[in-house]
Structures are given as structure tokens and as C-alpha cells.
Deep mutational scan, measured.
Amino acid sequence: AKPPKTVTVKVEVTNADGETQTRTVTLTNLPKDLKPGDTVTLPETGQTARIVEITP
């Protein structure tokens, strides 16, 4: 079996106070056609994050 493909992405997350924070997260099994501006759900927090940058 192939190991899951991990991708490092820079995302913007809005916290409970309405502040936008930029975080770098490593995600696995992202859709192939994901692009900056799309939103993903962070598995560890369940927060919705907007992708700023994808590092191949």
C-alpha cells in the first residue's frame, strides 16, 4: 500500500474572537484539484480554514 500523500498548506483560520490567523498545517489525502482560496476542515480542530498557499 502506498503511504498517504501529505501536503503542507498555509491556511487562514478565523478564531472565536473573529481574528484571522495564518497557520501552516500538514494534511493528508487532499483532493487533487485543491487550490488556494478553497476551504478545508482542519481535522484536529474541526475549524474551517481557507487555503492561502499549497507547498507541493
Results as ranks from 00 to 15, higher is better:
Ala49Met: 04
Thr22Lys: 04
Pro4Asn: 13
Lys2Thr: 11
Arg50Phe: 11
Thr39Ser: 09
Val9Met: 09
Pro56Ala: 14
Thr48Ser: 10
Thr41Asp: 04
Glu19Val: 14
Thr14Glu: 08
Thr39Glu: 09
Ala49Phe: 07
Ala1Thr: 13
Arg50Glu: 04
Gly46Leu: 04
Glu19Met: 10
Thr24His: 08
Glu44Arg: 06
Thr48Lys: 07
Val52Cys: 03
Lys35Asp: 01
Asn15His: 05
Val25Pro: 00
Ala1Asn: 12
Asp38Tyr: 03
Glu53Ala: 09
Glu19Arg: 11
Pro43His: 06
Val52Met: 07
Leu30Thr: 10
Ile51Lys: 00
Thr22Met: 13
Ile51Gln: 00
Val40Ala: 01
Pro3Trp: 08
Asp17Arg: 11
Lys35Ile: 05
Thr8Asp: 05
Glu19Gln: 12
Thr6Met: 12
Lys2Trp: 14
Ile54Leu: 06
Pro31Gly: 13
Thr48Gly: 04
Pro36Ala: 08
Thr48Asp: 09
Lys10Gly: 00
Thr26Asp: 05
Asn29Tyr: 10
Pro31His: 14
Glu19Thr: 15
Pro36Trp: 04
Thr48Gln: 11
Glu44Gln: 08
Thr22Glu: 10
Thr39Gln: 09
Thr6Asp: 06
Gln21Trp: 13
Thr28Tyr: 11
Pro56Lys: 08
Pro56Asp: 14
Val11Met: 04
Ile54Met: 06
Gly46Gln: 05
Gly18Gln: 02
Ala16Cys: 08
Pro3Ala: 04
Pro36His: 04
Thr20Gln: 07
Thr28Met: 11
Lys35His: 06
Thr45Gly: 06
Val7Gly: 03
Thr39Arg: 07
Thr26Ala: 06
Pro56Gly: 13
Asn15Ser: 11
Val52Leu: 14
Glu44Lys: 07
Thr20Asp: 02
Thr45Ile: 05
Thr14His: 06
Asn15Phe: 10
Pro31Asn: 14
Gln21Phe: 14
Glu19Pro: 02
Leu42Met: 06
Thr55Val: 15
Ala1Tyr: 13
Ala49Ile: 06
Lys10Trp: 08
Val13Thr: 07
Thr39Phe: 15
Val40Pro: 00
Thr41Val: 14
Ala16Arg: 08
Lys5Gln: 12
Asp17Phe: 12
Val25Thr: 03
Lys10Pro: 00
Asn29Trp: 10
Ala1Gly: 12
Ile54Trp: 04
Val13Trp: 15
Thr28Cys: 09
Thr28Glu: 10
Pro43Cys: 09
Thr22Ile: 15
Asn29Ile: 05
Gly46His: 04
Leu27Glu: 01
Thr14Pro: 03
Leu34Tyr: 06
Thr55Glu: 13
Asp38Thr: 03
Val25Met: 09
Lys35Val: 07
Asp17Asn: 12
Lys32Glu: 14
Ala1Leu: 12
Thr26Val: 12
Val11Cys: 03
Leu42Lys: 00
Arg50Cys: 05
Pro56Val: 14
Lys10Ala: 03
Val13Tyr: 15
Val7Glu: 03
Thr39Lys: 07
Pro56Ser: 13
Asp38Ile: 03
Gly46Thr: 03
Pro3Gly: 05
Ala49Asn: 01
Thr26Pro: 02
Val11Trp: 03
Glu12Val: 11
Asp33Gln: 08
Leu42Val: 04
Ile54Tyr: 04
Ala1His: 13
Thr26Arg: 08
Asn29Pro: 03
Lys5Leu: 13
Pro31Phe: 14
Val13Arg: 01
Thr45Leu: 06
Thr26Gln: 11
Val7Ala: 07
Val25Trp: 10
Gly18Ser: 02
Leu30Glu: 05
Thr14Tyr: 09
Arg23His: 13
Thr39Ile: 15
Glu12Gln: 10
Leu34Arg: 02
Pro43Lys: 05
Lys35Leu: 05
Leu42Asp: 06
Pro31Ala: 11
Thr20Ala: 07
Thr8Gly: 02
Thr24Lys: 05
Arg23Leu: 15
Asp17Leu: 11
Pro36Thr: 06
Thr22Ala: 05
Pro56Cys: 07
Pro3Phe: 08
Ile54Gln: 02
Asp38Trp: 03
Arg23Val: 15
Thr39Pro: 03
Lys5Ser: 13
Thr6Gln: 12
Lys35Ala: 07
Pro56Glu: 13
Pro31Cys: 08
Thr14Gln: 10
Val9Thr: 01
Val25His: 03
Gln21Met: 12
Asn15Gln: 07
Leu34Pro: 08
Val40Leu: 11
Gln47Tyr: 06
Pro3Leu: 05
Val52Thr: 04
Thr48Leu: 12
Asp38Phe: 03
Glu53His: 05
Asp33Met: 06
Pro43Asn: 05
Val52Pro: 01
Thr22Asp: 03
Lys10Thr: 12
Pro36Glu: 08
Val25Glu: 03
Val7Tyr: 15
Lys32Ile: 14
Pro43Val: 07
Leu34Asp: 00
Val25Ala: 03
Asn29Glu: 07
Gly46Arg: 03
Pro31Lys: 13
Thr20Leu: 11
Thr45Glu: 03
Leu42Asn: 02
Leu42Arg: 00
Pro4Ala: 12
Gln21His: 14
Gly46Trp: 03
Val25Cys: 07
Thr28Val: 12
Val9Ser: 00
Lys32Asn: 13
Val25Tyr: 11
Thr26Ser: 08
Glu44Ala: 08
Arg50Ser: 06
Val7Met: 13
Glu53Arg: 03
Asp17Trp: 11
Ala49Val: 13
Ala1Ile: 13
Pro56Asn: 14
Thr45Cys: 03
Lys32Met: 14
Thr48Phe: 08
Thr45Pro: 01
Arg23Cys: 14
Val40Glu: 00
Arg23Glu: 07
Gly37Cys: 03
Gln47Phe: 06
Glu44Ile: 10
Asp17Ser: 10
Arg23Thr: 10
Lys35Thr: 03
Glu19Gly: 09
Gly18Glu: 02
Val7Asn: 04
Thr26Lys: 09
Thr6Gly: 12
Leu30Asn: 06
Lys32Cys: 08
Pro31Glu: 14
Ala1Val: 13
Thr22Tyr: 15
Pro31Asp: 14
Thr20Arg: 10
Gln47Gly: 04
Pro4Val: 13
Leu42Ala: 01
Thr28Pro: 08
Pro3Asn: 07
Val52Tyr: 03
Val9His: 00
Val9Gln: 00
Gln47Ala: 05
Leu30Cys: 05
Pro4Ile: 13
Val13Pro: 00
Val11Gln: 00
Pro36Lys: 07
Pro43Phe: 06
Ile51Cys: 02
Asn29Phe: 09
Thr14Asn: 05
Lys10Tyr: 05
Ala16Val: 09
Thr41Asn: 07
Lys2Leu: 13
Ala16Thr: 09
Pro36Gly: 02
Thr20His: 05
Thr26Cys: 06
Asn29Gly: 14
Glu12His: 06
Asp17Tyr: 11
Gly37Ser: 01
Gln47Arg: 04
Pro36Asp: 02
Val25Asn: 00
Val11Ile: 11
Leu30His: 11
Thr55Arg: 11
Pro4Cys: 12
Thr26Phe: 11
Thr39Cys: 10
Val52Ser: 02
Asn15Asp: 11
Thr48Asn: 08
Leu30Gln: 11
Pro3Gln: 05
Thr41Arg: 10
Val11Lys: 00
Thr41Lys: 08
Ala49Glu: 01
Thr45Ala: 03
Lys35Cys: 04
Leu42Gly: 01
Gly18Leu: 02
Lys32Val: 12
Thr24Val: 14
Thr48Arg: 07
Thr8Met: 09
Val9Leu: 14
Lys5Phe: 14
Thr6Tyr: 15
Gly37Glu: 01
Asp33Lys: 06
Glu53Pro: 00
Ala1Met: 13
Val52Lys: 04
Thr22Leu: 14
Ala49Thr: 02
Thr24Ser: 07
Val40Asp: 00
Asp33Ser: 06
Val13Asn: 01
Arg50Asn: 04
Lys5Val: 13
Thr6Ser: 13
Leu27Phe: 13
Thr39Asn: 07
Pro4Lys: 09
Glu53Val: 04
Val13Lys: 01
Lys35Pro: 00
Pro4Trp: 08
Thr39Val: 13
Gln47Asn: 04
Thr26Leu: 11
Thr24Gln: 07
Val40Arg: 00
Lys10Val: 15
Asp17Ala: 11
Lys5Pro: 10
Thr55Asn: 13
Val52Glu: 02
Val52Gln: 03
Thr24Asp: 06
Glu44Thr: 08
Thr14Leu: 11
Asp33Ala: 07
Val7Ser: 06
Leu27Gly: 01
